[in-house]
């Protein structure tokens, strides 16, 4: 890999790290969910020296063209990221159900109380 390519990949990794960091700082991105993207940025920076790892790994797995190995690793990373976010969505769905049911109950209670209040005679205002 040329020096230029390595510098570009390192800059890309640092940019993603900085971008995610800024999003977290502005509270546009939750800290717990951002961890995954810091890890991704870290691996991109490491990726600048991937050929030292990729070449022997590709040889070990019998992949004739080593750069394909990068695509394979990226694919695995993406699948893991998707799985992680599916778990997060699933958890959010459960919480949304709880909230919706609680809100519905509270709304029902409020309506019942209003009905009771409306049925009761109103006390005279002070000074009447």
């Amino acid at each position: 890999m040329s020096i230029g390519a390595r510098v570009f990949i390192i800059c890309l990794g640092i940019f993603i790290f900085g971008f995610v960091f800024e999003l977290v700082r502005r509270k546009s991105f939750r800290e717990d969910l951002s961890i995954l993207w810091f890890v991704v940025a870290f691996f991109i920076v490491i990726g600048a020296f991937a050929d030292f790892l990729i070449n022997p790994l590709a040889k070990l797995l019998g992949i004739g063209y080593p750069p394909i190995m990068i695509l394979v690793l990226l694919f695995v990373l993406l699948i893991l990221a998707l799985l992680y976010f599916s778990v997060v969505i699933s958890d959010l769905k459960s919480r949304l159900k709880e909230l919706t049911q609680k809100t519905a109950f509270l709304e029902h209670e409020l309506r019942s109380l209003r009905k009771v209040n409306a049925a009761q005679p109103q006390p005279p205002l002070q000074g009447d």
Partner: peptide, 17 residues
């Protein structure tokens, strides 16, 4: 008596309510 969900939860969600 009527209880209204603000969003559609699904048949099971309504029964659980």
């Amino acid at each position: 008596e009527v209880i209204k969900h603000t969003i559609n939860l699904g048949y099971g969600g309504a029964l659980q309510t």
